[in-house]
Nucleic acid binder design. Structure first.
Lengths: 327, 327
DNA sequence: ATGTTTCATGCAACCGGTTGCAGCCCCTGA
DNA sequence: TCAGGGGCTGCAACCGGTTGCATGAAACAT
């Protein structure tokens, strides 16, 4: 089938080690020899087998990227940024989706462990304990989850939640619902903690909810029953689903209830009403995650913790509370 | 570091080949020995290194899945279905994104070639010539592109385009714009060909357009200038962007112009107006793609061509043409 | 008691690369 | 003339597994 290093060696009359060096340490081989080998390799369509190389070097030059749900539009910008950054560093990214299933997540990490140099865990659903155990098999960078002793990238969603709630109270909303996410979600906990310590707010916690528009649709009834005038949803998908559900029940946004999402995904911008949302620095997180991971290979570097700021994008889904003076 | 097969062999007092067989051909080893080896392996946290195994067996049990743009919501259902199907067959899927760049696509295939047993090419942007050349290095299944001699899955988008146009003409639209996609897109060509041979339609072709809402936004001005009353967009994202662009210019959908998208993505269902769209059997395509690929490993099987039907989902973005009798 | 199977295991080569070490050649300087 | 050193290449072991073949023991048939 495909030409191997020995085919090239034979055809160019040198030893395999010389061919090997031609590709992995060119400065060690005479220019003339090198050119001959390269010509033969080109001719035979030879390409070094990265997997075989990894066997001796211990470096695959691949990194794994595990996300909970690839169809959640929150992830693609992060994935793309990570891929671009990795490519620039001569690495490749393999993406895998766990379907929000911790079991699958663990299995995936196990499989990936030997085929990549490190793994980016984005919004993992596994428990910290399991993550720490798996860490023995492969280096991690964790995104949106705090695990001690591991390089971590956090998006400051607590700050985002505060901004969102301040925005709502500023508009006269005082009874506010917080739609929480999946039970394993660190993000959800952060939002809840941040919201709980704010003054002048009657907080109603509803959930856990699936982090999808379906989750938002399903909770609409409860939101109405709770008598709130403002809602902070776990993410934009939930917010969009909720708005849809409210709409079906004759409750209008933002006239009757104001809704804030999180993530600032494209669909929110195209939604009607356009969604007010907490914007997450996903692309920056993707780039930084790759850099942190590569960095962790080189040195016995101490694990870094990076916290990235979020900000609020005000659009049309929030407005003054109904009983609040309009003028 | 991680335990190897030799560590296990030493600790359990057998030869490495026995350990190897314990995992890859258990029936060849005595039950008692097997249990002892398994216990030791468990104890040491040993897991077979799939990459090393692949070196001799030639089977990685991985498959690659290459898409043009992971942030296009058309792909995730396909990806998820492929992953689920692969898992059921004891295979794993690595996803990679080409950013719509043929150069990147080729490079990615080259890299993946040795690390997977086969590759699913979804809506590739490479030319058939290049695809055929690369086929020497790794088995393919091609989705939404016709390449001779290769297992192929097509979604019958020509039929979908006909359904959409019939729907529009039935509503009294006779001057219809077709917003084409990227220049390398097979899908786009099929739509165009199908549309061109329909009677009673004045077809205006606009494009190529980027297959994103941005692409739709950008072409809005041209659509208005063309004087059409009906539009068939390359996909839902383009349709959504177009509707947004028309809206900004005071043109209303479906009152002034009717718009049909393709793919039936979730965002289209949440859009206002809800999008009329040609639904693609993406999940079925993902499952079938995996099966076709695995099948192509086993036998010297002749490459199959599967064509999957599409159907039209009518929602709110299409209505009677303005001059068409309403009653 | 002997020949034949069957079962379980060990041996060693191999997959496609990498790399420390040794050896050769040639150039330099004393 | 010869020691020393640099540049280039070959040798062979190694990475972590798999597998065809040989071996040995036990079980069975004759």
């Amino acid at each position: 089938m495909a030409a191997t290093i020995r085919d090239v060696a034979r055809a160019s009359g040198v030893h395999v080690s010389t061919v090997s060096r031609t590709f992995s340490a060119p400065h060690l081989v005479n220019a003339e020899t090198r050119n001959r080998v390269l010509a033969v390799a080109e001719d035979l369509g030879y390409r070094p087998n990265r997997a075989a190389r990894a066997l001796t070097t211990g470096r695959t030059h691949n990194i794994g990227l595990i996300v909970a749900d690839i169809s959640n539009p929150f992830f693609p910008p992060l994935i793309k940024a990570a891929q671009a950054q990795a490519r620039a560093r001569d690495y490749h990214v393999f993406v895998a989706d766990t379907d929000e299933d911790p079991q699958v997540e663990e299995e995936l990490i196990q499989t990936l462990a030997k085929q990549v140099d490190g793994v980016l865990l984005c919004s993992p659903r596994l428990s910290n304990r399991v993550i720490e155990r798996l860490h023995a098999e492969v280096p991690f960078v964790v995104v949106n989850r705090r695990v001690k002793g591991m390089p971590t990238i956090l998006m400051d969603v607590g700050q985002g939640a505060r901004l969102a709630i301040e925005h709502l109270t500023g508009l006269g909303h005082h009874r506010i619902a917080l739609l929480s996410g999946p039970s394993g979600s660190w993000t959800s906990g952060e939002m809840r903690a941040a919201a709980a310590e704010m003054d002048g707010v009657e907080l109603v916690i509803l959930g856990p909810n699936a982090p999808t528009e379906r989750g938002g649709l399903a909770v609409a009834e409860e939101v109405i029953a709770s008598g709130v005038t403002g809602v902070l949803a776990y993410n934009d998908l939930v917010a969009i689903g909720l708005i849809e559900g409210l709409y079906e029940r004759g409750v209008r946004v933002p006239d009757d209830i104001s809704v804030v999402g999180v993530d600032d995904i494209v669909a929110g911008r195209l939604n009607r009403p356009k969604l007010t949302s907490v914007a997450m620095p996903t692309a920056a997180a993707g780039r930084m995650a790759v850099d942190l991971l590569l960095q962790s290979f080189d040195e016995g570097a101490t694990p870094t913790l990076a916290t990235l700021d979020t900000h609020l994008v005000v659009r049309e889904s929030t407005d003054r509370a109904a009983l609040f003076p309009r003028g």
